[in-house]
């Protein structure tokens, strides 16, 4: 099961959001997409999920172009967890996760034991079983994010796309969610996630893909890609890269410059 992105270009009118991107992701691999705001990470994710039609290039899943399939068929193979998703009012966690089975149900297809199993498994994998009856509005940010992750897992797809899965979370909850993601990759899923926190991305991703102005700026093992030059190129910051005492993973430490006199005027 491989995901192949070939020469993908996506344009919004005159603006090129994704520019000739090549990417291959194998089953079980976690790829973290990093880069500054507006560099095309989310657009790339949407294009892979068949939500945005590319101007050029293809997205192949098992050698089949996703645009030759119907939306529902794609949703059985690729799950996308959106950034800041909204659910119908008053929904419970279990109610939300059941929507993950929606692509698998037809007009006359009723709720089956397989559906129920997938839901229970997704709840268990994300540690949400005990909270299944809670309303979404009653959950903490981390719990709500795990409920959305469970929905994507219940879709039972081979590809999992995540748009900033941890951006709203404190470090503890972020690592909870990333742990769930790592486990589901270990079970054979292909995972691509957009991340802002370089240090977390480095720790959980097998491969880092850095984007800048719609193009892939660098790609490879986190330890090899993350350098002071990368921080400068992506975010325009001066930073040191040191190795973590425990596992040697690179850590980006921005250098705090003395404030320029007119910085905020």
């Amino acid at each position: 099961m491989t995901l192949q992105v070939e020469n993908l270009t996506v344009e919004y009118g005159a603006h090129t959001a994704v520019d000739n991107v090549e990417l291959q992701v194998a089953a079980g691999e976690i790829v973290a997409l990093v880069g500054p705001n507006g560099c095309g990470k989310s657009t790339l994710l949407h294009a892979i999920a068949r939500l945005h039609r590319p101007t050029a290039g293809r997205v192949l899943l098992d050698d089949v172009d996703v645009w030759t399939r119907r939306p529902r068929d794609v949703a059985r193979r690729i799950a996308l967890m959106a950034q800041a998703p909204e659910a119908p009012d008053d929904l419970s966690v279990a109610g939300l996760v059941r929507f993950g089975r929606h692509p698998h149900q037809g007009l006359f297809h009723q709720w089956s034991t397989a559906d129920e199993q997938a839901v229970q498994q997704a709840l268990a994998e994300t540690g949400m079983t005990a909270l299944a009856a809670r309303r979404l509005a009653e959950l903490s940010g981390g719990q709500r994010q795990r409920a959305w992750l469970a929905t994507a897992l219940a879709q039972n797809t081979s590809v999992l796309l995540l748009d900033e899965p941890t951006s709203m979370l404190d470090p503890g909850h972020a690592m909870d969610v990333l742990g769930c993601i790592r486990d589901s990759a270990a079970a054979g899923r292909t995972v691509i996630m957009v991340m802002h926190d370089l240090n977390l991305a480095v720790r959980y991703a097998h491969r880092l893909v850095a984007m800048r102005r719609g193009r892939i700026h660098a790609s490879g093992k986190p330890g090899a890609v993350v350098t002071p030059a990368l921080a400068q190129a992506l975010y325009g910051i001066e930073a040191d890269v040191i190795n973590a005492p425990r596992d040697g993973a690179p850590i980006v430490v921005p250098a705090v410059k003395p404030r320029a006199p007119d910085a905020f005027s």
Binding site: H46, A49, L51, P71, R72, D73, V74, A75, R76, I78, A79, L80, M81, A82, Q83, A84, P85, E86, A87, P88, D89, F99, G100, H102, P103, Q105, L107, Q155, D163
Partner: peptide, 17 residues
Amino acid sequence: RRLVLLGFDLTTARALG
């Protein structure tokens, strides 16, 4: 049955097929 998905945001609704 299908319109249920309109209760979600646009991206999620489309991601669910």
